[in-house]
Design a protein around this nucleic acid. Sequence first.
DNA 1: AGCAGGACCCGAACGC
DNA 2: TGCGTTCGGGTCCTGC
Length: 289
Amino acid sequence: MGKLGTTFTRIEENMPELPEVQTVINNLTPLITGRTVKEIDLLYPKMIQNDLVEFNQKIIGRKFIGIRRRGKYLLFDLSDGQTLISHLRMEGKYSVLKDPEELPKHSHVVFWLDNGEKLVYHDTRKFGRMHLVSTNEVDQTKEIKKLGLEPFSSEFTPEALFAMLQKKKGKIKVVLLSQEVVVGLGNIYVDEVLYAAKIHPASISANLTLNDAKEIWQATKEILKKAIKYGGTTIFSFKNANGDIGHFQDYLKVHSQEGATCKRDGHLVEKIKLDGRSTYFCPQCQILK
DNA sequence: AGCAGGACCCGAACGC
DNA sequence: TGCGTTCGGGTCCTGC
């Protein structure tokens, strides 16, 4: 590995983190709101968490009435009180296509609409999942009910974060990745947040101070905001689907920067495994607590 | 409750 | 050059 910013050897596709999920909502809403689903093609049935017959019966003939988000989960509200919970995981994408013949690679679910267009879910890794539930039961589903605070909500404050961190005995990185305290941080952003906060990723959550919580609170908001500004993550990509080069890698301080020098103190950035995840940090300025 | 480990997937990177 | 192996991302699940 070379110095920071000189070589980046691998790239990832746009990884749907919280900001990207919001972008999907903004793009899809005008295209599908008010549209009725005429038919569904389930090309990869395993990603549907419901009984397949029930899934079809409850969606066909219903209308998309709006799209919401909770954490990284998309919530498609349909008429007759149904909501489709959809998680993009690593590489899931939605497209609305006019050409009836066109089908992107790795298409897994097709919703045919009443205007002749279709809403297509495609996902190279097949990691995404869909779960149809009653709208009034969304908050009680196992995937939604465990979720913590929205990072841009008024409830997300240093004090609230501190109170929650005090109750956790696990390592801070694991706690932040769990989505149970604050939603939206993935493996890359977590490393950046903890670097900004000068906290060692293996620190025990309950050992952190109010000031630590304040640093994490601020870094979380700033880094997620920055991700929006630079058009999403595109952490390692040489190019994205449009052929554009991603820019966020220019701003990574530690993640994927093993062997680079810390800009604060010149120490070498280290890579370890934590909770089975690649973890990058500066062992000098990120304090273990 | 925490935590390790495996499962799910595929393409890119890597090793030979 | 070609081919087999390794890796990693978010989340769930099992078992200790």
